[in-house]
Every structure is written in structure tokens, then in C-alpha cells.
Design a protein around this nucleic acid. Structure first.
Lengths: 348, 348
DNA sequence: GATTGGCACTCGCGTGTTTTGAGTGCTAAG
DNA sequence: CTTAGCACTCAAAACACGCGAGTGCCAATC
């Protein structure tokens, strides 16, 4: 079993995959023969038998046609697939959505998610990068009411974070300004999480050595950054998977999948490892990082603007999804938002 | 057909409803007879026939047991239902969640939603009231980077809103402070939407009469409040409805329902009209405000803290839901967050 | 040697038929 | 008014059957 198929076998595999993609039914030798012209069903049968031996195809039962295995799909995606160009209208819509009013960035990326789910007919998962991972542009402290202090952090990408710190009496406007400036001083260019650890470190270091204001500042900001809120997770077009016959057939499986979508952690895991590289990733069936969902494929890419990560977007659907449309869709979106880097379509 | 049933008929209706609630199957005279003791199946049959004539019960087909109609459920909820006390553990969990760290309030209410969906086994819909409807406590303007201005609005209930206004060069720190103070001056006690209209009014009124700063201030804030973002909508425990046999049986219907949940507008409509009154509302089947979902019931209540509306929470499930548990659950939650007002359980 | 027509065989699926049993309505007796 | 008895109904489960799509294999053909 060689890694590369001869021309004819590849051709057959391609046709099987493509036919299966839009019928969701096992495809027989007859169909392929017609579509190829040249060869008779009998010949096709021989080729298909070979493809089955090498693990590219499988038979649900003896007297049925063949369906591609995950392995077969992999080969198709890697070598056989012809990307279908996006429609003018699709590009227009994406551009309009991506370009629409800059702030707030998280709203933009959610819209993109919704749109993608519509265009693709698949479920779309969006992880909005945590503003915590953005670089700070500055920090301000404000008095808010009698005893409360409001800390406002402005981030590089246009994000704004705030924390209301309650019950912090006894600070004059002047104090606040001084503390604010102090924080502002060493915050620029750091991420919130970096700032957090820097503050803690600083606190241990100069414990009550410097003047009262500094200590106070540190205590205050330590209170303001207790936890690192993870990025938000959205799933759009969930119901699209109800459109897939292979899922609807078996209600039990359907439950499993929908239930998985409700678990934030599972969704995050689904898009795992895309965050770093800017490349689009295709995970077919068991290749995806969630073992509980072996019959699901993910096409995902990370989105960034001006070099800072906005989030991750992924289309999730049956293994039998139309990669020739879905992949360009996701790549185009990723490109739209700045990181046009696409180093081929890597598995895993 | 009288509005009030005699004792025996009521008893039978109650048992039918309750049995149906936990079996989801038509219930026969035999079952009821056993449960009542005293009466034989034949007698029960007579009573049931009467109940059917009066519209409380129905037969899916001739040789099946009876199931309650929406009308029957209504009667049950209004007159027959015995509220089941919450478990100690349920109360504890709710209290813990409701009490957990005050800000941000929207996070609290989402948590409550999630918890309710778990405890009830139904889908839980949460509408977080828009901070726009909260009264303002104050407004500040901040310089953010070179050309950007950040407007921060602090609300009564602990909410904080911010808008980043980009490309607004040529304002000194001093200008900003003046403008900020000006806005702050007439904003306290208003809601954001009120402020919005007041600003627009003001702008028309003293168009370029006063000094440059004021006009600038108004233009600036008009830019900051262009739209009124509606309250966020969350749905938790969607998949719980997959647990309901009546929905799973018919995939087509299932699609309709899940699809409806993806439409923000539908979800909002589902909880419509609860916003004003603090009372818990029970809408059974066709009574609910969404005609497209005639086989769904909603138990909803508005939540408020310190007199200001936090949002609305509703449990959504099949008509055959366990009202005796669900209603107290929702009412207790509403009570927990301050508005213990509950003027009976009103339909419509 | 690759290709192809022919042919027997397999097996899932849809259809029609039968059986079963839960539940009813009615009637006549208590 | 209640109840036992009985005939009747009808959905759902169990079963049987034939169709047809599709296969594998073999022998004939190019």
C-alpha cells in the first residue's frame, strides 16, 4: 500500500468522495463508471476493491456501495481537492462584516461567526481571544461613587477592560491619580496576565518599603486582577447539524454532539492548537482533538488584526463536509482580518 | 361545562396530569383506579369521559389512554398543583450563586441561568437587562492613546459601560476634563437612553451658541451613544429538551424548536411582558407569546436587585413539565434577588 | 495483461400481513 | 351510582417476502 495513488485510482477516489459529499449515500461502481466515461462498472469495482484494501474506502455492508474512510478523506483533502472559488456575494458579505465599525472587536468576530455558519451550512465555533492576552496601551483609575474605584485598561487591539473595585474608601482624587500613573508607568506593552504576575512579584519585593501610595496601588490592582477570565466562546448555527442526515438518523449520537457544544471546555479543545499558528487547519474525524466526537471534522483558523490575536474561528460539521468550499471560506476570512499567512492545510 | 370541577373529577384530573408528567404516555383508567384506591376502572372511565367532554383531557386515538389538554394543564396549575418545597441543596446552590461577588451583575445572572437549567432539567433562557436602562451614577472621559477618547459610564446597579471613540484628535487633557464634567453634570440619575435623547435635544437647542467646548462635548457624546444595544440573550441547557421524548420522537418538530432558540428575537418574545411585573408567569402551550411553538411552556420571572432590573429568567420546556417543582424554583430565584413580589401565578 | 460482459449471490429496505395487548364503551347486574 | 364482564378498536411489534442495488468472480475479449 503506497502513499501515493496512481492516476486512475485517485480519480475514482475523488469521485467517490465528491459524490458521497453531496448524497450522503454509499456510492456504487455504476455511478462512478458513468461519471468517468471510459471505464466499465466492472473495472471500477476492481479499483474500488483495491482502494478498500488500502484503507481509503469502506463498505457499510456487503451489498452496498462504498463510502470514503477518514483516511480517504485525508488523502482527498491533501492531494485531490480543488478549491472552489468563493462567490462574489460571499466575499462581499464577509468583507462588509469584517470591515464594519472597528470597536468593539469581539462583536465583529461574532458577526463573522454567524455569517460563516450561514454561508457554510455548518456549525461555526468562535473563540474570542481574551483581552487579557492583548498588550496594554494604558491604565486609568477613576473614582466611582463614594467608596468605589473603577480601573480601566485600554488594550492595543481596541479592546477595553474594566473592573469595578468596591469598598475602597479613603483615597483622594490625588491619590488615585498618583496610583494610576504609577500603574500606567510599567503596564504599557504588557499583557494583563503579565501585569498580574509583575504586580505580585513587585509586591513581595518592596513590601511596605516604599511610600504608602505605592503599596496601596499594588494592593488595589492585585484586587482588580484576581482571575484571568478566559476568552468568550460562541457557537453559531448549531442547528445546521440537524440538517445532516448522518446525524439525525441516530438520535443518540445527535444528543452527544449537541451536548458537547454546550460544554465550553469541549468547544475550546476542538479549536485547540490553532491559536498559535496562523495557518488553517483541517481535522478530519478522529484527527480532531476531541476523542468523544470521532465523526466530526473541523476546519479552523486563527484570526488576527494588526498582529494581535482576535480569536479563533472554526467550522464544525460531519466528516462528509464540503471541504472544497469550506476551506477557502475559512482561509479567506482569516486573510481578511490580516493574517494572510497560510502554509498549506496541515492535519493534526 | 362548569368552570369548577367536583372533588372527584379534580382528583382524577390531578392524577392524570401527574402521571402524564412523569411518564409522557397516555394514562389509562386502570392506573388511576389503582392510585385512587376506592374506585374501579369502570367508574374512572366514566369520569374521564366527562373530563374529555369538558375539554380537560383528550385521546390520541380511540384505544389509548388519556392525556391532559393545555386547558387541563391550566386547571391543574391554577387549582390543583401542590408546590413542592425546594431541596435544601437546591436552595443552597441558588443562594451561593446569587450571592457570589457582586460585580459584574450580568455574569451573576448567567450563572443563575445555568444553574436553573441544571436543577430543572429544562432549557433556561436568560435575558440580561440592558445596562442602557440602568440609571447613571456618573460619566468620565479619558484620553486613550493619541487620537482616541474613552467614555466610561458607571451605572447604579454596579454595571459599567464604555465606548471607545476613535479619531478624535485635538482635545487637550483639560478640554476632556471640562467636557467630562459638563456631561457628568446632567447625566446623574438618567438612563443612557434618556441621556441620549437629552443630548440630541440639547444639541438642536443651543446649536453653536455656547462656547466651543460644550458643542464639542455634545458632538462627542452623540458619537458615543449611537445605538441602543439590546440586552444580551443567553440560552442554557438547550440540550435538555433532547431529553424529552415528545420532542425527540418527531425530528421535524425538534428542528423547529432548536432553530427557534437560535433566533434572538424569538427568545425575547418568549419572555415578553414579564419584564414589567415582578410576578412569575406561567404560559402553557399555546398561551405562550410565540405562536410558532404551540407545544412549549414557559415559566418566567423578572429578576431585580435593589429595585433595578437585572434581567428576566425563564424555564422553557414541554407542556408536560413538572410545574410543581419548576414554579417554586423560578419564584425562589426571583425572590432571592430582591423582588419577592409574587402575586399568584398569572397566565398570559 | 488489462478490460469487460455475464451471472450468481448477498443483504438492506420497504411493503404487506398477522399478532398482541392495552385500553375503551357499553350493558346488565349489584 | 358503581362495577364486573365482554366485545371491540387500533397502534405498535413481529414476521414474512420480494425487490433491487450492488458486489465478487470468472471466462471471454481486445
Amino acid at each position: 500500500m503506497s502513499t501515493v495513488l496512481d492516476d486512475r485510482a485517485a480519480q475514482v477516489l475523488r469521485l467517490v468522495v465528491e459524490d458521497y459529499i453531496d448524497t450522503a449515500e454509499p456510492v456504487g461502481s455504476r455511478t462512478i463508471s458513468k461519471r468517468m466515461g471510459q471505464l466499465s462498472p466492472a473495472t471500477i469495482r476492481n479499483i474500488m476493491a483495491d482502494l478498500e484494501d488500502s484503507g481509503y474506502l469502506a463498505q457499510p455492508h456487503t451489498s452496498a456501495g462504498r463510502i470514503p474512510t477518514a483516511f480517504g478523506f485525508r488523502y482527498y483533502v491533501d492531494y485531490l481537492l480543488e478549491r472552489r472559488q468563493l462567490l462574489r456575494s460571499e466575499r462581499d458579505q464577509l468583507q462588509r462584516t469584517a470591515g464594519a465599525g472597528a470597536p468593539p472587536p469581539d462583536e465583529t468576530i461574532r458577526q463573522i461567526g454567524r455569517l460563516l455558519s450561514q454561508l457554510s451550512g455548518q456549525a461555526c465555533v468562535v473563540i474570542v481571544a481574551s483581552p487579557d492576552d492583548q498588550k496594554l496601551r494604558g491604565i486609568r483609575l477613576l473614582r466611582a461613587g463614594r467608596d468605589n474605584v473603577l480601573l480601566v485598561a485600554v488594550m492595543q487591539g481596541g479592546w477595553v477592560q474594566h473592573r469595578l473595585i468596591e469598598d475602597e474608601p479613603g483615597l483622594t482624587e490625588g491619590d488615585l491619580e498618583k496610583i494610576g500613573n504609577y500603574l500606567d508607568g510599567f503596564s504599557v506593552g504588557l499583557t494583563l496576565s503579565q501585569l498580574r504576575s509583575k504586580i505580585l512579584q513587585e509586591m513581595r519585593h518592596e513590601k511596605s518599603r516604599y511610600d504608602r501610595v505605592m503599596t496601596r496601588a499594588l494592593a488595589l490592582s492585585a484586587r482588580a486582577f484576581p482571575d484571568s477570565p478566559a476568552g468568550e466562546v460562541y457557537v453559531e448555527g448549531r442547528t445546521n447539524i440537524l440538517e445532516q442526515p448522518e446525524f439525525v438518523e441516530d438520535v443518540h449520537n445527535l444528543k452527544r454532539i449537541l451536548r458537547a457544544f454546550e460544554e465550553k471546555s469541549v468547544v475550546v479543545r476542538l479549536l485547540d492548537r490553532v491559536l498559535d499558528g496562523g495557518a488553517t487547519r483541517v481535522s478530519i474525524g478522529t484527527e480532531n482533538p476531541v476523542e468523544e466526537l470521532p465523526d466530526i471534522s473541523v476546519v479552523a483558523s486563527s484570526l488576527q488584526r494588526d498582529g494581535s490575536p482576535l480569536g479563533t474561528v472554526g467550522l464544525v460539521g460531519p466528516v462528509r463536509m464540503d471541504y472544497s468550499r469550506i476551506i477557502p471560506l475559512v482561509e479567506y476570512t482569516a486573510g481578511l482580518l490580516g493574517s494572510a499567512k497560510m502554509e498549506g492545510v496541515q492535519p493534526k
